Simulated assay, not measured.
Amino acid sequence: MMTNLFSVFDPSAIFNLSLNWLSTLIGLLLIPSIYWLMPSRYNIFWNTILTTLHKEFKTLLGPTSHNGSTFIFISLFSLILFNNFMGLFPYIFTSTSHLTLTLTLALPLWLSFMVYGWINHTQHMFAHLVPQGTPAVLMPFMVCIETISNVIRPGTLAVRLTANMIAGHLLLTLLGNTGPSMSYFLVTFLLVGQIALLVLESAVAMIQSYVFAVLSTLYSSEVN
């Protein structure tokens, strides 16, 4: 019996070796197919996704963005997507369900945008603190609200991804633990429910990686 419901997310040693965080890099095993002489269907499909993302991120960043600036966000999307998907397989550690990873991705990214913006576009950054058309009486309050909303951005990015990953996995674990005490008739419904939840989790894995990358792109576009 589990002493704590969240213990399913705890890193555990395998053969006395803590190899859990290596699952973060497991997506790299899928990359060598790019170097095949004849491109596979998977390769063409993945290239189509990356091209679409590149066009969308380019639009979000605006015409003043530097060439190649979308690559970091596409790489971020790929990393989170691979991690979210791999976490749905049994016995693979879900690294995106830990704030250790998500904050490591969100905080340096946001911090670099802020440092770059305040050094190179100081007036533009100050202008962001007071939305256009704000009455003079509300200006001090708007500055406080905008500052707080700006400061909590990396936290909200990290917590959103972590919470979504934890929620689905917890539900799957809770339903799975009730299986042994059920009758054969009810287990059939349980299996159907688990499969439906896995499909939902697959969709969440894609959506959350996309949301993380798009919001990071939007935060960087405000700096330019």
Rank of each mutant, 00 (worst) to 15 (best):
M1P: 05
T3I: 12
S7D: 10
V8A: 00
A13E: 11
I14T: 11
L17I: 10
S18H: 15
L19R: 09
W21Q: 15
G27I: 04
G27H: 06
I31Y: 00
W36E: 11
L37H: 14
P39W: 06
P39I: 08
R41C: 11
Y42I: 02
F45S: 12
W46Q: 05
N47Q: 14
I49A: 04
I49R: 03
K58G: 12
T59G: 10
G68E: 09
I72E: 05
I80A: 08
N84M: 10
F85P: 00
G87R: 01
L88V: 01
P90M: 06
P90R: 06
Y91H: 05
T100A: 15
L101N: 03
T102P: 12
T102N: 14
L103S: 14
L107E: 09
P108Y: 12
M114Q: 06
V115K: 04
Y116G: 02
I119G: 01
I119N: 02
T122D: 06
H124K: 14
M125N: 02
P135N: 02
P135G: 02
A136Y: 05
P140I: 01
I152V: 14
R153T: 08
T156V: 11
T162F: 07
G168E: 01
G168P: 00
L171F: 06
N177W: 15
L191I: 13
L191G: 07
V192R: 10
V192N: 12
G193W: 08
I195P: 10
L198I: 13
S202V: 05
S202T: 08
M206E: 04
Q208A: 11
V211I: 15
L215W: 12
L215T: 14
L218W: 13
Y219N: 09
V223H: 01
